[in-house]
Amino acid sequence: MLDALGVIFPFNDTINLSELNEQRTIAGLPIGGRYRLIDFIISNMVNCGINNISLVTNKKYQSMLNHLGAGDDFGLNRKGHSFNIIPPYASSGEISDVSLLSNAIRVTEKFTNKYVIISNSNSIYNFNFADLIEFYEAKNADIALLAPDNSGNIITNTKGKVVDLNSDFNFFAILIERNLFHELLAHAKTLGATDFIADVLVKNFEHLDIYHYLYEKFYSTIDSVKKYFDFNMSLLDEKIRLKVFENNVYTKSKDCPPTRYAEGADVQNCLIADGCFIDGKVKNSIIFRGVKIGSKVDINNCIIMQDTIIQDNVKLENIILDKQVVIRKGQKLVGQASYPVVVAKKAVV
């Protein structure tokens, strides 16, 4: 068990993934055949022994409530463990990072753990947070920043202390003492600050000892449709798959029957979830639960999300089909590998 609370925060809610995040947060993106992006982050925390995890939400959090519930599927619905979804309290308008994070205090103040780990919600990485705590203590830091190599976006002095951050720097998580976290947020609120990174961290470089822990293993940060597409496709590579699934990744379980491969099925190089029916040709694709693929269908390089139906004689290439899409008989949709086409949830084509 780690003496830390987990807080997952959508620092990147403004990223635009076309129709993919029109009705959901980035954290709720379906990924890898049966997961949502957030499953990787929560699972990683659970696997490290973080037993109390909160998800701060801003908008479009309905799918998160359905998917995560009380954290049963992550083993968090038990004594001494908890999973909380913290919705915004304000009723309308844009809500600042600082006020959203302040909402998290209502949960974090109930615990006695020494640390809080605030994780971003759009990266997939495998990391043991115990190493970050060790690093934090060794550096006698105020804040430890877990981030991959940022090609100069994180500027440190000779002692490794962070002295500046460029606005588009990429990080995974922040480790901070719980009391300091509460104090910084209270102070920021008093000053009317809005952006946690720019107003709370960057403006306080002189008062805070922030250290960068360099993450060097495999990761993927989903910040564009192309990145989303490529990450999914990379799971077809056994080497990458083994890295991504090095530890258990939990997700909501569903009562699907096994996948049925019918007479006309010709499936090669695919990742396929349970509950599908396949009677056509499917190559180099990621197929989510409950997808139905008719006969004489030709699918190549596609991501097909849950409960989508592909009728007979359809040809699809380089397409991302969101959930519950229906592609009618005889349709032909072709995108470019460099620019995959997204078909929105529940669309009928």
Binding site: G32, R241, F245, T259, C270, L271, I272, D274, I287
Partner: peptide, 8 residues
């Protein structure tokens, strides 16, 4: 918690 099936 199981990953999807892999058809090579």
């Amino acid at each position: 918690a199981r990953i999807p099936q892999i058809i090579y």
